[in-house]
C-alpha cells in the first residue's frame, strides 16, 4: 500500500503532469493536403467549356454562372457536391482545384477527355427542325437558318433535308443538350462519353 502511494506520488506529483492535466489542449483539426475537399477556384479564367457540369455525377452540385465582371465562374453548391473531383479533372483550363488532384494531373499528364455523339431515333423524329434551330453552334455557323431547320450551309452540325434530319458534323457538338430539351418527341439524345487519358510528361514520374 505504501509502495503504491509512493508510486502514485512519483507519477503524478510532477510539474509537467499537472500542467498537462490542467492545460490540456486537443490537437487542432487540420485538413491534410491529400484530402479531396470541395473544389476551389485557382484564379484561372473560366473558358465556359462547361465540362465540369457535364462530368459532375451529383445533380445540381456545380453550375457555371456569370461572375462579378464579364466572365464566367463555376459555382459549387456544397450541399450537393460529393467531392469526387471529376470537375477538376475534366476542366481543360485548370480553373478548379481540390486536394492534390490538380498537381497530380499536371505531374502525371492525366486528363479526362469528352466526346459527344448524337443519336436520333428516326421512328420518333418528326423532322420539325427544332433541334437544328435551337443548336447554338448551328446558330453561329448559319444565322439565317430557317424555322424548319433547312440550311444551305454544309458546315452546320445537322439540318433537315427532304423532311429528314441529317447529322453532318458530329465532331462540332459541344454536348450542351439544347437540342434534347427542345425536341418535342424526345427523339434526339446526346451521349457524353468520358475517357480517361494519360500523356506521360516525363519518364519515371513515380
Amino acid at each position: 500500500m505504501g509502495l503504491l502511494l509512493i508510486w502514485y506520488l512519483k507519477e503524478f506529483a510532477r510539474i509537467e503532469w499537472i500542467k498537462k492535466f490542467l492545460f490540456a489542449k486537443t490537437a487542432p483539426l487540420v485538413t491534410p493536403l491529400h484530402f479531396r475537399g470541395f473544389p476551389e477556384p485557382t484564379g484561372k479564367t473560366c473558358q465556359h467549356a462547361l465540362f465540369c457540369m457535364m462530368a459532375c455525377p451529383a445533380p445540381g452540385a456545380i453550375e457555371v454562372v456569370h461572375d462579378a465582371g464579364d466572365g464566367w465562374m463555376p459555382r459549387i453548391h456544397k450541399g450537393h457536391c460529393i467531392r469526387c473531383g471529376l470537375c477538376v479533372e475534366a476542366c481543360p483550363n485548370g480553373v478548379l482545384k481540390s486536394g492534390r488532384i490538380l498537381e497530380t494531373m499536371e505531374r502525371e499528364g492525366t486528363s479526362l477527355l469528352f466526346s459527344f455523339r448524337i443519336a436520333i431515333d428516326l421512328e420518333l423524329c418528326t423532322g420539325c427542325g427544332n433541334c437544328c434551330t435551337a443548336c447554338p453552334i448551328n446558330k453561329g455557323i448559319d444565322a439565317q437558318m430557317g424555322a424548319g431547320g433547312h440550311s444551305s450551309n454544309d458546315e452546320v452540325i445537322m439540318r433537315v433535308q427532304k423532311g429528314d434530319i441529317v447529322v453532318i458534323h458530329e465532331d462540332k457538338c459541344t454536348g450542351c443538350k439544347t437540342c434534347e430539351v427542345s425536341c418535342p418527341t424526345g427523339a434526339i439524345r446526346i451521349a457524353r462519353i468520358l475517357e480517361g487519358y494519360q500523356q506521360p510528361v516525363q519518364e519515371g514520374s513515380q
Binding site: P32, F35, R36, C84, R100, I101, E108, T110, E195, S205
Partner: peptide
C-alpha cells in the same frame, strides 16, 4: 487509403482503363 485515393470511404479511385492518380514516392 485516404492518402492513396483522397477520400476515406467513397474513394472513386478506379476508372475504365486505369486509376485516377498515381502513388507518389
Amino acid at each position: 487509403l485516404e492518402r492513396l485515393t483522397g477520400a476515406r470511404v467513397t474513394c472513386a479511385y478506379i476508372i475504365p482503363g486505369g486509376v485516377r492518380c498515381d502513388i507518389p514516392r
